Simulated scan of single mutants.
Amino acid sequence: MKKFLSKASGILLPLFNTRAAGLYLLLFAGAIGVATFIENDFGTSAAQKVVYKAWWFELLLILFSITIIVNIIKFRMVQQKKWPLLLFHSAIVIIIIGAGITRYFGFEGIMHIRENDSANSFISSNTFLKFKVNANDQTYDFNEPVLFASLGNNKWEESYLIGSDLINIRVKDFIPNPKKILSESIDGIPTLQLVIGGLNGREEYYLSMGETKRIGNVIYNFKDTPFPDAFNIAIRNESLVFTSSKVLTQTVMATQEKDTIYPSDTDSPLKLRALYT
């Protein structure tokens, strides 16, 4: 037993000495540096998949934390009352533990809270693969957490037992950064292109007749039937009109003419190439 422990300590101790700590620190700095370039060129999801949420990055932080704890004990920082060094090393461990709690038990997203308003929901940054299975007059809903990106492996496959049937679901292909393209068609429906100032600048969305879509914290409703607390758009006499429960400022981009529109049940003309705030 003693021989086994001595061999184990001989193998493990070099992984947790001061040299190892320096190596882990250099690897960590290099990893986040590479992740910065990946995020700039391929997007945040690619950086998370390749670096931040990769198993080896988590292992690196765990080894670094253990190394710091081992050195605190090895150099007897408590017994020798080396409080500044103890405080510095302990702070690093606490930060990594806090990051781990946030990683596995926290939630990340965006919450829109207007002035003098309240909110009890937020838009999650997590992505899910959503699909339904209809069997035996029943509908089964599935929301599987996934992380697809323009880099890395995007394969996903899972099996489900629905009644007595085993169903295999597999993602055939992933198209990064898709763009919607409008084309004229005899069977087409009226569609609006909405340009919105978002967190990342100009954002474009499409809203077709018959759709109700939430974009940010605003609900856009392109139907003849109004939707409560939404920006309701309809076609009346071959012209676009809208109603809203909010006070709006309308700015015509060509002339910079501004107008204030107050909440009303009466339809107001929706001007194309105009900014509504």
Rank of each mutant, 00 (worst) to 15 (best):
M111L: 07
Q250Y: 09
L23W: 12
P14Q: 05
G198V: 10
T255H: 04
L15P: 04
I235P: 07
P269G: 02
E157S: 14
L15N: 10
R103G: 03
I11A: 11
F131S: 05
N136G: 07
Y220D: 01
E211H: 01
P263F: 05
M111K: 15
D267M: 02
P145N: 05
S159V: 12
S45Q: 10
D265N: 14
I101R: 04
A99I: 14
F227E: 12
N116L: 10
Y104I: 10
I97S: 00
K213F: 05
N177F: 14
D187V: 15
E257F: 09
E115P: 05
F231Y: 08
G109Q: 06
E39R: 09
L207R: 00
Y24S: 01
M1C: 09
I92C: 12
N153A: 11
A54V: 02
T191C: 04
Y52G: 08
A31D: 00
I69L: 15
N200R: 07
T18M: 12
F75W: 06
S125L: 10
L147D: 00
I219V: 15
N200K: 09
P14I: 04
W83N: 04
G100E: 03
S118G: 04
K81N: 05
R214M: 14
F142T: 05
D137R: 12
N237E: 15
F131D: 02
L12H: 01
P263Q: 03
Y52A: 09
Y140N: 10
Q250F: 07
L270P: 01
K82D: 04
V78R: 05
L26V: 15
K130A: 13
E158V: 13
G197W: 11
I62E: 00
E157H: 08
S90M: 04
R19W: 09
D229T: 04
R214H: 11
T36V: 14
L23K: 12
N17L: 06
I94W: 03
T212N: 13
